[in-house]
Each structure stands twice: as structure tokens, then as C-alpha cells.
Design a binder for these strands. Structure first.
Lengths: 127, 127
DNA sequence: CAGGATCCGCTTCGATACTG
DNA sequence: CAGTATCGAAGCGGATCCTG
């Protein structure tokens, strides 16, 4: 893991520039559902249909899902493929850039799992 | 890396339950500035003062920074320590749970860096 | 099935001004 | 320095109706 990498910088001005550039790059992940969408796409290990995403992501509605997918597509994180048939079929999958997020997503999923195991079996539940 | 881990599940119902639980766990990272804040705290390899965070995170305003930090504190991701002195000094640092996000954060930073290097030197700039 | 368009209320965000 | 208070702007969420 790269946990021990050193991003700090002796030059305060460069440190701020680095921070600004990082902020800018992460801006494409802004949006309430984007990381969750990416988690599901990554965990699926393959393309997902719109309806599958909708079912996997609890609490999202069509409008928001479409909006966030559009932005991810525009930012070249996911690719949208339309099959010209009736009824229509549209699949979403990670682009190369999106797939490069794999390590982050995997680590996030692991973290979520750990957090869940740590918080679910609370002693308070035993009365 | 855990990129080759298998989170998929043969049982569709369990797959949906897993997705819901993951969504729920990731909810604490919702908010426009949280991941960016965590990136900066992680890259700093130590506590940061409020004013330092403010300087490092371009585009954030005091109100949002305070709000997001408060939520992160409530969710036990960051710890807030007040030094009772004049002028006031408050530091923020990762808790154990927050620090456990290290691998994700590190990978996100790497991704941002890669994305930057890939998109900045665009051939279009050469006319 | 996979959207698109619009309206509406709610929540979040952003800018400025002010406080201990 | 590290916050609060306030207010307008933007984003989110739900409902409804429509297209191919």
C-alpha cells in the first residue's frame, strides 16, 4: 500500500498548489451518488444495466441516477452503451480512468465493511 | 491490493442487501468537502489547524468547512481538540476509524495525480 | 425499458458580516 | 483564530406526464 508515501512538501506555496490541484481532480467525484455508483460498478466486475443500478442503489431515484451517470460519462469515468433494440437496453461500465479508481473503491468497500462489523454488534442491543 | 477481491454474490437478494449496507456505511462521506478534507488531513500526516485546512482547501468557506468537520467529528472520523488560549487554537486529526480510510485516501490521491498528469499536457495545447 | 421535461418543496451550499 | 448568523443561490428529491 502507498500509505507511507510522502505528499507533504517543504515549500508551503507548492503544498498549497498541490492541494488545489488535488481538489480540482477530485471534483469529478462530487455528487451524492457518484461514489456509490462507482462502488456498485466496481463490485459488479462488469457492465450494469440502468435498471440494475437502480435496484442496487437503495434510495436513489431515476432522475438523480440519470443525472449523476451523465456527469460521470461526461468526465470520462463511465461509458454508456446503447443497444438499439426494443425494449431498449443501456449498459454502463467503467472507462480506463474509472477503472483506475479501482484501488480506491476497493479500499472504500473494505472500509465500509469493517465499519459495519464494528458498529453493528453493539452491546446496547443485548439489553 | 484487494482489486481482485470478490464482492459479488450468487444470491441476488444478498447482493442487494450488501449494496444497501455499503451505501449506508458510505453515507458518512457524503458532503461536498469531506473527502477533500480527509485527503488533506491524511497528506499532512498529522493534525491541522482550522486555518491551515482553510488555506489548503481552495474554494471552501468557513461555514462549510466547519459544518463538514462537525459532521465528520460526529461520525467519529476526525477528532477536534481545543486549546483554551487566546487567540484560540483548534486542531483536527484523524481518529482510528478515519485513519482506517488511509488506503482509500492514498489511492484517491494517486488517482488524482495520475488524472492530472494525463489531462494537463493535452496535445491541443500545442496548436 | 430507459430515459426526458417540468413543477415544487426541501436541503445544502456560498458570500458576507459579525463575535468571543 | 475559530467560529455564528443570515440570506440568496444551487442542488436534491418526489411526482407526474411524455417519448421511442
Amino acid at each position: 500500500m502507498t500509505t507511507d508515501r510522502d505528499w507533504s512538501c517543504n515549500d508551503p506555496q507548492k503544498r498549497i498548489e498541490w492541494a488545489a490541484a488535488t481538489t480540482e481532480a477530485l471534483r469529478v467525484l462530487e455528487g451524492k451518488w457518484k461514489i456509490i455508483i462507482l462502488c456498485q460498478l466496481f463490485a459488479a466486475k462488469g457492465p450494469l444495466r440502468f435498471s440494475e443500478l437502480e435496484r442496487l442503489i437503495e434510495g436513489v431515484n431515476q432522475k438523480m441516477l440519470i443525472q449523476q451517470l451523465k456527469q460521470l460519462e461526461k468526465d470520462d469515468i463511465v461509458r454508456r452503451t446503447v443497444y438499439p433494440q426494443v425494449p431498449p437496453k443501456v449498459i454502463y461500465e467503467l472507462t480506463e480512468t474509472g477503472f483506475a479508481l479501482g484501488p480506491s473503491i476497493a479500499a472504500l468497500i473494505d472500509w465500509a465493511e469493517m465499519k459495519r462489523q464494528r458498529t453493528v454488534p453493539t452491546p446496547a442491543d443485548c439489553g
